[in-house]
Amino acid sequence: MTLLSVRDLTVELQTSRGMAAAVRGVSFDLEKGGTLGIVGESGCGKSITALSLLGLLPDGARATGRVDLDGTDLLSLDEDDLCHVRGNRIAMIFQEPMTSLNPVHRIGRQIAEPLRLHRGLGGAGAREEVLRLLHRVGLPDPARRINAYPHQLSGGQRQRVMIAMALSCAPDILLADEPTTALDVTIQGQILDLINELVEDTGMGLILISHDLGVISESVDNVAVMYGGAIVEQGTTDRLFADLVHPYSQGLFAAVPRPGAVRGARLQTIAGTVPELADLPPACTFADRCAKASPVCWRETPAMTAFGPGHAAACHHHERRGDA
């Protein structure tokens, strides 16, 4: 059953050079209990996509399209109704657990806030629930740590607190925006394991946003690759990584250094850098960096075309590759 359906989501942001589209016609579905990974480099629109689901876009931003959660279009909700969605139906964890926790409040109080607002718990009931949540996310010695301030915890522990807060109202969807980017690799493993375990146990859906193909590949069943505000390739994790179709996905994959590779082999690079939003090519946003680009790429926006079961890409040139 489809829980979240995003159709033609376009978000325009105010920049110093006028309105520029940060997200361009993004469509995806999330099944109940499904897991989706959104992968891409900085400026590809992955975070803006996530923020628009929660109505947290910056001032002056304009979002069009549809974001249906169980039949309700989230883009049409007013601030009061959105408050019922945030934390309650869709919860979010951010990249930097230090800046997303309030430094002057004890963590117990911060985790209790959504319990108070959405579930009407208070006093002893809230405290008990906070302890249960802290225990659930594996924070050692919860009874003592409930009174700790964020600065007294390590990065991994702070991320566990963020996850406890996100879990507090048993959301339908957990939105995790680069949840492990600020963490060390062994701690990253612990946090990703915890997120996966919680998704399996509670049956909530997961949207995991990351720049790291490895993290995505190990954690979700479906993947969308974004570049320049558009989804350029999407599919099930197995099929997508078995046969990358879009030149950008291929380039991203080839650019990652892998330990144990043949000595002297050079990394493949993608020419140039990610352009600013206002400078993105009008049709296919990857046209100016793509080795295969031809005039049609500058004229027409490529449509998402099925490339196999559960695998689609938006590239004018991928049929030709299929023939060869």
Partner: peptide
């Protein structure tokens, strides 16, 4: 270390 294509 996260590995690409290693599956879940």
């Amino acid at each position: 270390m996260p590995r690409i294509g290693a599956g879940r």
